[in-house]
């Protein structure tokens, strides 16, 4: 294994294979460290052994092609937002990455760290990536596994001994949006998140994807609302009414920032925000 040696408890490999070799011996992957270094605040022991993945160039790659965007898992929120600012279809992802947390955290917190933290319910990137039909690649010593976001989110709590290496997002003529409700205007965790993507064809809503984050322990698609809106003409009031009648698909989690009932109650307002944003984006579409 090639590595910048740092003592046996803490290793800094420079390749993905090196990182996989370094796991074991109580060492866990450490990316931006913004979750792991808060262990004492959660009443857990501070990390003592780690595989730092910040020196692996492959994990920092961003490629923007005609049909797809590929993001290395080590890309930070700041870099992600800067790199994708010129991709109209991914405005929702840019919003998610540039509104999460606060500027110094965004400068170090990574895409992979955000997606792999199963205990963190309020992540902004996962609902947006669900709505965008993204796929992730998870590497272990036995090979790589390609998963869609729903599969990955269901499995992530039990994955170990491996590394999330990249996220691939298909591109198209669609537009995307992201709405979040923090209690202060910025800086704290969102109480609820709605991410959406859709295409518009002859004024009808097509390929509608809606995902909800922070309301339940794990983000998931709002399949009832997607079905209700698919193929319908764009009508903001009807969209918000449908959302209002379908919030019972979710059971909000109680937490320090908000009770469960409040998290579901605000969903129609967030749906309204994302669809207003989408409509403005379609009005500007060439």
């Amino acid at each position: 294994m090639t590595e910048a040696n740092s003592g046996s408890d803490v290793l800094r490999p420079i390749t993905i294979a090196g990182a996989l070799d370094a796991l074991g011996g109580g060492r866990q992957i450490m990316a931006g460290a913004t979750w792991l270094m808060r262990a004492p605040v959660r009443g857990e022991a501070p990390p003592k052994a780690a595989v730092l993945i910040g020196s692996i160039p492959e994990l920092q790659q961003i490629s923007i092609g005609q049909d797809q965007v590929t993001l290395g898992a080590g890309v930070t929120h700041t870099k992600l937002a800067e790199a994708l600012a010129g991709v109209p279809a991914l405005k929702g992802l840019v919003t998610a990455a540039s509104r999460a947390a606060n500027p110094p955290i965004r400068a170090v917190a990574t895409l992979g760290g955000n997606l792999c933290t199963a205990a963190f319910a309020a992540g902004d990137l996962s609902p947006q990536l669900l709505a965008l039909d993204a796929r992730v690649t998870y590497a272990t010593k036995d090979g790589t596994q390609d998963m869609d976001m729903s599969q990955f989110l269901a499995a992530r709590g039990n994955l170990s001994g491996g590394l999330l290496t990249r996220v691939r997002i298909p591109l198209g003529n669609f537009r995307s949006a992201h709405a979040r409700l923090p209690l202060r205007k910025a800086g704290d965790y969102p109480v609820a998140i709605v991410s959406a993507r859709m295409d518009q064809n002859e004024s009808l809503m097509r390929r509608v994807r809606i995902a909800v984050g922070s309301v339940e322990a794990t983000p998931r698609r709002w399949s009832g609302l997607e079905a209700a809106l698919e193929g319908q003409p764009y009508d903001l009031k009807a969209i918000a009414d449908s959302a209002g009648s379908l919030t019972n698909e979710f059971t909000g989690r109680d937490g320090v920032e908000a009770d469960g009932w409040y998290r579901t109650k605000v969903l129609p307002a967030l749906v309204r925000q994302v669809f207003e944003d989408l409509s403005m984006q379609f009005a500007e579409r060439p």
Partner: peptide
């Protein structure tokens, strides 16, 4: 990572030093 009282610059970038392992 919430209050910012520990902010330092790392290569010119404001960073929360409470969440940065010294090795980084």
């Amino acid at each position: 990572g919430f209050c910012g009282a520990c902010t330092v610059h790392i290569d010119g970038v404001p960073t929360m030093s409470c969440l940065l392992p010294v090795i980084a």
